[in-house]
Amino acid sequence: MVKIANIELGEFPLLLAPMEDVSDPPFRKVCKANGADLMYTEFISSEGLIRDAAKSLQKLDIFDYERPIGIQIFGSEIDSMREAAIVSTQAGPDLIDINYGCPVKNVACKGAGAALLRDIPKMVQMTSEIVKATHLPVTVKTRLGWDDNTKNIVETAERLQDIGIKALSIHGRTRVQMYKGEADWSLIAEVKNNPRMKIPIFGNGDIDTPEKALEYRNRYGVDGIMIGRASIGYPWIFNEIKHYMATGEQLPGPTLEERVAVCRQHFTHSLEWKGEKLGIFEMRRHYTNYFRGLSHFKPLRMRLVQSEDINEIYDTLEEIAQTMSFV
């Protein structure tokens, strides 16, 4: 049984990665229904939280059916991160996660996210202050290092464990790599196999099939796997991996009717949480992924992403179910 502090996650948990503008409550709801064991909010700006910025505060919305769930925060200033941890704790999550892995410019170039990989002493001090600021378990998501010359994750993991984090998720790339090339899990395995490490180690990067999930579990010995991009528009991946690991057999992929049904659920949740205008707009990024491989989909996709009418969108989804087929 894998546990983060006293949170039981099963024998080999599958985690939904925090993704900006993706892992919001509507998306998390369909992932939870399809087998995700632990989920995180979108990463939330510490400065936004302590300034009461509306968008940041909305990201604190969590629901009991999502549990266990973590709130993930990022920032460049230790004092702000400590305050953000206090605000986040009051929202009632099961844990607090710190983002030391986001590579995008508007995060890393402001000294937050993966930028802390260039200043490990500051990362350690920041983490220590957050651990002291909350009664909840604190976890960390990070990368192998800033670049090929600073792959210091083995030492960094030890230092973070020593100051009290309860789990560590590692993306198998450096910041400089962004999302290019192949994720290197060998250093993730080195962290896991370090006899000093006692906390769960979760691997992240490039897991997009049940076969690869099983292969990487067996080869690298991690305690669980965090899945990000492969779940967008395909929340079924969690249950497919679980079934394959348990039986060695592939679950049949979702039928077109099942894809439409889950997409419709996702859209409905989006409307409920965000309201009509934003719910319609922010759902548009998901349609291509839900219906990837659908023949002659482009005209209907254009209708979905251009329509501002709820009923027209529902009607278009129904038309997809009735008239379309996969290549």
Score class of each variant (00 low, 15 high):
Asp21Asn: 14
Thr174Ile: 07
Gln125Phe: 14
Thr174Arg: 08
Pro26Asp: 03
Val30Phe: 03
Tyr179Val: 05
Asn193His: 14
Ala321Glu: 14
Leu136Gln: 00
Ala246His: 10
Glu215Thr: 11
Lys298His: 12
Arg284Val: 04
Ile98Met: 05
Thr41Ser: 13
Leu116Arg: 03
Arg28Glu: 07
Ala183Ser: 15
Ser56Pro: 06
Gly48Arg: 08
Tyr287Glu: 06
Leu16Cys: 09
Ile199Pro: 04
Cys102Asp: 05
His243Gly: 02
Ser23Gly: 07
Trp185Tyr: 14
Asp223His: 10
Ala157Ile: 06
Ala183Arg: 10
Lys151Trp: 08
Ala183His: 07
Glu42Trp: 06
Val30Thr: 09
Gly253Ala: 14
Ser325Gln: 15
Ala17Glu: 01
Pro93Phe: 09
Asn289Gly: 13
Asp208Tyr: 14
Asn99Leu: 01
Glu20Tyr: 14
Glu129Phe: 13
Asp208His: 14
Lys274Cys: 10
Ile62His: 04
Met178Pro: 09
Ile225Leu: 15
Ser295Phe: 14
Gly113Ile: 05
Ile188Ala: 00
Ser80Pro: 04
Lys166Val: 07
Leu304Arg: 03
Gly224Phe: 07
Thr174Gly: 01
Val154His: 05
Asn152Thr: 12
Pro235Lys: 02
Arg175Phe: 07
Leu317Gly: 05
Arg303Tyr: 06
Leu95Asp: 02
Asn204Ser: 15
His286Ile: 11
Phe281Tyr: 13
Ala183Met: 09
Ser46Asn: 03
Ser231Leu: 00
Ala91Ile: 04
Arg67Thr: 09
Thr89Trp: 10
Gln250Thr: 12
Leu49Phe: 11
Ala84Asn: 04
Thr323Gly: 09
Lys110Cys: 11
Leu160Glu: 02
Asp184Cys: 09
Glu240Gly: 05
Thr156Ile: 11
Glu308Ile: 11
Gly101Asp: 01
Phe291Thr: 07
Val327His: 12
Asp94Pro: 01
Arg259Gly: 02
Ile50Ser: 04
Ala246Cys: 08
Gln265Phe: 00
Tyr179Cys: 08
Arg259Lys: 14
Cys109Asp: 13
Glu8His: 12
Lys212Leu: 15
His171Ile: 07
Ile7Leu: 11
Gly205Asn: 03
Pro137Asp: 02
Glu20Asp: 12
Lys122Val: 10
Glu77Gly: 08
Gly111Ser: 05
Ser46Thr: 07
Asp52Ser: 14
Tyr40Asp: 08
Ser88Lys: 01
Arg175Pro: 00
Ile69Tyr: 01
Met19Asp: 06
Ile96Ala: 04
Asp21Glu: 14
Gly10Gln: 08
Glu318Trp: 02
Gln177Arg: 11
Glu308Lys: 14
Phe297Cys: 10
Pro68Cys: 08
Gly111Asp: 08
Gly101Ser: 00
Arg51Val: 03
Lys3Leu: 10
Ile320Asp: 00
Phe27Cys: 07
Met19Val: 09
Glu11Tyr: 08
Phe43Cys: 00
Lys277Glu: 15
Leu256Val: 08
Glu42His: 08
Lys29His: 14
Phe291Pro: 05
Phe12Ile: 01
Ser23Gln: 00
Thr323Asn: 13
Met226Thr: 11
Ala53Tyr: 13
Thr247Asn: 08
Gln125His: 13
